[in-house]
Amino acid sequence: MKRALLAFAAVATLPVFTISPYVLNMAATAGIFVMLAAGLYIVVGYCGLLDLGFAAFFAIGAYTSGILATRFELPLVATLPAVLCATVLAGIVIGGPTLRLRSDYLAIVTLGFGEIVRVTATRLEITGGPTGIYGIPPLAADPVAFFYLVLVVTALALTGAARLGRSKLGRAWQYVREDEDAAEATGISTYRVKLAAYVLGSVWGGLAGVLFASQLSAISPASFTFLQSALVLVAVVLGAARNITGVILAAAFVAVTPELLRAFPDARYFLFGVLLVVVMLLRHRRRATA
């Protein structure tokens, strides 16, 4: 707890050293990514459900707020209730029938769902087709203000996820992850518990989508590809020695690395893929010898 506050304070001093919009922007990007990872951590880390289409909820949040804000000339904050409803609904619609499935089937269904959402956004008129939506009003006009906004929201999201993990519901998620049959036999409705994880994860993802829409002021289907889902998942798994702090670091790493590798535009995702394999192999080897 103390360490978390210290880390928060340390990051908060960033604008003292630089107010370069480039750096602040990158920090905000990393922050949004950390928030996404916190949402997925609820699903994958606590509950052990593999979700390969998490970008769908990110997209649903971003599009819901973007469409409402541009069509009805609302400030972005006013769209939050609608975003909450949309993400909860999406979580129930997709999780409801599929969470009864075996876990690896769930992975593929979520992958298919991610593609359905992206393709639908590309085809529909209301979502602006392939070009998407532009002219979304920002939550905060000034880069420094936006940086602090992202920082606070992300910190709240992380605290929320961590607190959920230390509650009755969070323990139930972990029972499901550890041994689903035993959890069910102990009187825990594993289906409902999984659905709760899925819906809460999707709410976190949707709220991150609102920040994203505000940051870019324009959104298009290209931002919500499988690549995005995979990157968030990678952050969660790399960082998840079942610990949310690890996820924060890994998420920041995953968000910033491709940016730093921008010098080698063609090679960066290749290197990233290789790195991923190597890390998994090394981590496992270490465990095997330990």
């Binding site: 029972y175 550890e178 049959d181 825990i188």
Partner: peptide, 17 residues
């Protein structure tokens, strides 16, 4: 069939769920 990574007391809390 315990929840191996969780503490003994958290295992018992499953019964209290």
């Amino acid at each position: 069939r315990l929840f191996p990574a969780m503490s003994a007391e958290d295992n018992v809390r499953a019964g209290l769920h």
